[in-house]
Design a protein around this nucleic acid. Sequence first.
DNA 1: GTCTATATTGCGATAGAC
DNA 2: GTCTATCGCAATATAGAC
Lengths: 196, 196
Amino acid sequence: MADNDCREHLITASIPLFAAKGLNGVSVREVAAAAGVNLSMISYYFGGKEGLYAAVLKEQFAVLDKLDELEQMDIDTLQKFEWYVRATISRYRKSPYLLRFYTSELTTPTVCFETIVKPAIKKVVQMLLETFTDGLSHERFREGLNPADTVLALAGMINFYFLLEPATAELVDHTPQRDEELIRHIMDIFTRGILK
Amino acid sequence: MADNDCREHLITASIPLFAAKGLNGVSVREVAAAAGVNLSMISYYFGGKEGLYAAVLKEQFAVLDKLDELEQMDIDTLQKFEWYVRATISRYRKSPYLLRFYTSELTTPTVCFETIVKPAIKKVVQMLLETFTDGLSHERFREGLNPADTVLALAGMINFYFLLEPATAELVDHTPQRDEELIRHIMDIFTRGILK
DNA sequence: GTCTATATTGCGATAGAC
DNA sequence: GTCTATCGCAATATAGAC
């Protein structure tokens, strides 16, 4: 195996395993076999199983950095929210394991929660809060809206839809073909919900 | 230890442990110590660790049965949705580990997912779908609403708020004192979002 | 029903050869 | 860098005494 292909193979192979079974549900032997790599390479490259898991999480959450663009965009607040919804959905489509790591860390946190996951979530929420308060002055939002409740409501509508997929696949069509309809639907409820 | 106090002690002590660390993150020794009970009692009463976990999940999800009342209530559709929101929040307050089992099973399912969790979730979603379609004829809902997207949006707003608590506690006030404000806020967005 | 003691398996990590 | 072989430990489960 040339150079540190090993390293990449281990990360790639362990993503679906960690996502499906969690840190404790996966053994180093299992990961090594899936990666087609010797068991000892995990300690060599990552210092152990937890190190590999941390590397996976770091890579998974790196995609959230793109959300920074939102601040400098020259569009109105509601368009920014729609951009967030659209970016979130496209992120979950491209990175189908991200939400699992997200919620797995929220419910059964590892050491990575404080260092990687919590900061990432706080950053997103904070960005949404700023977007909302920025828009308060020149948008026609109705009175009495609580900023936190408002942005969490929007985030909840999208994220929960994907979170529930394993349980509702037979009840609700979760295919990407419906994504545009879903976006319009969520934005319709949200927009009518917060405008005067 | 009188009668099968052992059994109860084991369930009670293991709830927070399983909720915080998942099935694989907890050892039988740990549970036995927390319950003040001999290790072998787990196999005696539950046939092993997985049996104890299944018993815990069954008990945790039993509270969802109360949602059946909703069907026979003689109130309008929007009031039914508010009752659901209110019942969900009060359930999470009384049973603070329920959401963790919920999401833990959704992200890293055990054998209990198919037998306990998925049926429970489907039942709730189905009930919300019926509530919505029942209301379609005599409520002034706007045209073009997708039933599934609509009820999942409502469920998402509530559930996600609680799910994010570990990450946003410093950013958002999650105390029960604000529950009434949260209910009103979610219902305001939802109501404006779906009415004509 | 409850205990102790133990059987057995699988785990993560690494020493040392190449 | 990659391998084999193995160490030491912790896991679940249970046999058998009381």
